[in-house]
Write a protein that binds this DNA or RNA. Structure first.
Lengths: 144, 144
DNA sequence: ATAATAAAAGATATTATTGTCTTTTATTAT
DNA sequence: ATAATAAAAGACAATAATATCTTTTATTAT
């Protein structure tokens, strides 16, 4: 479904959103531990997320990553589009170049429904929504 | 969604199913052209499909690949499970090891619905079903 | 029987993804 | 001002996915 990079990106943002004040920073090390992901790799991903303003970053002592309320209220779709592109939502499930309603691949119509429900679920759920589940201990970001 | 290998596998079987008599063989070259896929690569994939009895193969002159009625009536899910495994249907969307209803990742419940509709669509549609669309010229296996 | 055919099997090459390490730059506390 | 900190940037390494080529084996038409 998602690339590993995208999985880490989603989990990292949900983790960062645990600091609700929008000011307190979380370092890469802590994030990597909190989502059981390779530290250097999430560092790279966070660079990209920071460049594209999905998260904010602060250098130096007490630095790290944080998110404003506005950033937390973005749909998870934003992250997916940034990292994996729109392939999941717009590409043909069988890889045809110009698959469409009028010139479809055999799976096109069946797959349209699924695409739509994927888009819908990524659009309607924000990073904050998912973080709320974690804060309420109704969901986790890693396991042993 | 699917790996390239899996996309080719699905398209190749749908293409082979165009020979409805279950006897007439189609060669790799023709299949590769018919689905716009690299010849040697589909050859490899067809080897695996043949080994697992998704398709039948015949060596020598007039040889190639064909499918019996029983084979055509298998759900596309069989191919997906063989090539990509059950990750799409059983793995956690965020990559957690033991994600479940009682110990879920934040996206778990939302994703369950999608997984279910993917499984459903792969289970209820057979290779023959999709081939019917192609025969009826209501769908294509390649584009220019 | 023999030559031609086509898949099976095995080996190799290329590219993309994932993961790691080092150096540089900006910030902050002292 | 300076040293310590932590992200940014760039380079590199390992692995997996995709793609290609060669040799072997089985089959069939002659």
């Amino acid at each position: 479904m998602f690339s590993k990079t995208c999985e880490y990106a989603i989990k990292a943002t949900i983790f960062i959103a645990q600091q609700r004040d929008g000011i307190t920073c979380v370092g890469v090390k802590e994030i990597a531990k909190g989502i059981h992901a390779p530290e250097y790799f999430v560092a790279k991903i966070l660079q990209e997320l920071s460049r594209k303003k999905i998260v904010s970053s602060v250098k130096g002592p007490n630095g790290g990553f944080c998110m404003s309320e506005a950033q937390m209220n973005k749909p998870v779709l934003d992250i997916v589009l940034l990292i994996d592109g729109d392939g999941l939502l717009n590409s043909c499930v069988l890889g045809l170049e110009h698959c469409s309603n009028i010139n479809p691949c055999p799976m096109h119509h069946e797959y349209q429904k699924i695409k739509q429900s994927v888009r819908n679920m990524l659009e309607k759920n924000t990073i904050l929504d998912f973080n709320n589940l974690v804060l309420a201990k109704k969901a986790v970001l890693f396991m042993n």
